[in-house]
Amino acid sequence: MTEHDHHHHDHSELSETELRVRALETILTEKGYVDPAALDAIIQAYETKIGPHNGARVVAKAWSDPAFRQFLLEDASKAVGTLGHVSRVGDHLVAVENTPTRHNMVVCTLCSCYPWEMLGLPPVWYKAAPYRSRAVKDPRGVLADFGVSLPRETEIRVWDSTAETRFLVLPMRPEGTDGWNEPQLAELVTRDSMIGTGFPKRPGASS
């Protein structure tokens, strides 16, 4: 995979294969052979089947293994690499840790800036312009829309993904999970909790 080896700071980039797929989709749509909504529906149906989807595993490991947690916060790409997952985009991954005093959330409108290898496909709202603009101006309001309320004194940091860097939120480990093993913990980690628009599931709550 050499297509992404060259990076530019100021503009967007699509790989050679992405360009070809977009080209086909556009012409076939214009000619009435395919319907973009129908394509989206098919793709959404495989949302959980795209990429290794190993974000939950990474978070669960960080909760259980202090050395791994430290490594993840220092160099997320390398830390994730030790789990045997080799990825080109993973070169630029940064993990940001939620604490009792700080909550992190991530924005970016482009799917190409989204750590899909870890999280699967971006949700539709994530790509929407209102999310991006409001998340920066009014993060507390956006979180409220997601049903997430934080103590007033909790600082909210919004991370805007760039072409070089994408972010993974390391949520706080839920209480009541002492002694849980990594696979059990991974079950609690939701996609939204790794974007920062949600919390991990609580032990005992139905999924």
Binding site: V34, A38, Y46, K49, L121
Partner: peptide, 23 residues
């Protein structure tokens, strides 16, 4: 369960073929 994809564009290419076949 069914098909898996390494990258998003693969799912897109799959979806296009599926649609054209359905047509």
């Amino acid at each position: 369960v069914g098909p898996v994809f390494r990258e998003p564009w693969e799912a897109q290419a799959f979806a296009i073929a599926l649609s054209l076949h359905e047509r």
